[in-house]
Simulated scan of single mutants.
Amino acid sequence: MAQVIKLYEENTDQKQLIKIAKAMRDGALVIYPTDTVYGLGCDITNKAALEKVAHLKGVKLEKANFSFICEDLSNLSDYTAQIDSSTFKLLKRNLPGPYTFVLNGNNNLPSVFKKKKTVGIRVPDNAIATGLVKALGNPIISTSIKDDDEVLEYTTDPSLIEEKWGKLVDIIIDAGYGGNIGSTVIDLTTSEPTLIREGKGSIEL
């Protein structure tokens, strides 16, 4: 069963984040809070863990549309092609925040994603999520926790997350009830920003 670790965003236990980050480096799958919904993530550099996440989502890893959770915009040039100043200003204005911005990828993408031309970047406004990335030292691959319920699209109750995912992942971070609205997804790969999915973030950029 997954280890459940209670953390509070207002006073996050750094020692616990370092411990979780070490487990992720060793291949652990972690469910953690963001500023929108709970996410399922792993270390972007651990291929075995990436394969497990893709398997749980029922998709081929090479075709999976996972987000890259970053601590801040300093990670941007690691995985994305050069962006112009207006795009950078738009990102800086809206991040951290409940957005996933789709950008053109570069040659530094992990080998399993080399065939993908684009990458979804997230910088959540959540101290646990960004603290975990900081402790890990590189982005986290992430995908939202979906719910089978016809009314609720996402699982928001940590006890239900444990019930459903406890045997499938290694660590569950319990930060209380999560949100039930996903991030707003904006495509920035063309001349004008294009709305892909309306979520928690305002579409008035």
Rank of each mutant, 00 (worst) to 15 (best):
F68H: 01
I181Y: 09
D13Y: 12
I121C: 04
K92T: 02
V102M: 02
F101T: 04
L61V: 04
Q3W: 11
G39M: 07
D147W: 06
Q82P: 04
K167V: 12
D78H: 10
D13T: 13
I140K: 04
K146A: 07
G176R: 06
N106F: 08
E204M: 13
L17C: 09
I128Y: 04
L136F: 06
P139R: 06
E150M: 14
K19N: 14
D13V: 11
P139S: 06
D125N: 15
I141G: 01
L91I: 00
K167E: 15
N106H: 12
V59E: 03
P98K: 01
Y177R: 15
N46Q: 09
I141F: 06
G120Y: 03
T118M: 02
H55Q: 15
R197C: 05
I186M: 08
G199W: 04
K52G: 01
G105E: 02
T36D: 03
K22E: 10
A28E: 13
K200R: 12
K117R: 14
T155V: 15
I145T: 09
G178K: 12
K52T: 07
L61Y: 02
F68Y: 07
Y154A: 10
I69F: 08
F66Y: 06
S183Q: 06
R93K: 14
S159G: 11
G105H: 07
I172M: 01
Y79G: 01
A48S: 11
P193T: 10
F113W: 06
N75Y: 15
E198W: 08
V185W: 01
G120K: 03
I141P: 00
K57R: 12
D35S: 08
A81W: 02
I145F: 01
